[in-house]
């Protein structure tokens, strides 16, 4: 019973965080803040939802598979976001502050 309540809390908060991440994809002003919104909430939502599901198993092979998914997603998802942001930086994408700076220089 305690496990189920705990799992419910974990699942609901996981769903909440992933929703905030999706909203952040649209609401944030430039690419780097959007990557930040997406990747941070991705990690926390993965941790919360998968552990919520683990609490609903009988702690057998299914739980181990879920743990494997968790480890895998926690390794790959931030790496992919990091590589993407680095690639964007390398490709010459500027942050909002830098764009403002260059505009100020042009004007002043």
């Amino acid at each position: 019973m305690i496990l189920e309540t705990l799992s419910t809390i974990l699942l609901i908060s996981g769903a909440f965080f992933s929703l905030t991440g999706a909203i952040g994809l649209f609401k944030f002003p430039d690419f780097f803040t959007r990557v930040h919104a997406a990747s941070v909430t991705d990690s926390i939502a993965t941790i919360l939802i998968i552990s919520g599901l683990i609490l609903r198993t009988d702690f057998d092979l299914v739980a181990i598979k879920l743990l494997f998914i968790l480890v895998f997603l926690l390794l790959t998802s931030p790496t992919a976001s990091h590589a993407l942001a680095k690639s964007a930086r390398h490709g010459g994408l500027l942050t909002l502050a830098e764009i403002r700076d260059t505009q100020n220089k042009d004007n002043g």
């Binding site: 994809l25 690419f31 959007r34 990557v35 997406a38 998802s77 992919a80 976001s81 993407l84 690639s87 964007a88 490709g91 994408l93």
Partner: peptide
């Protein structure tokens, strides 16, 4: 890059 982010 935004597109790649969405796909990911």
């Amino acid at each position: 890059y935004d597109r790649i982010l969405g796909v990911n």
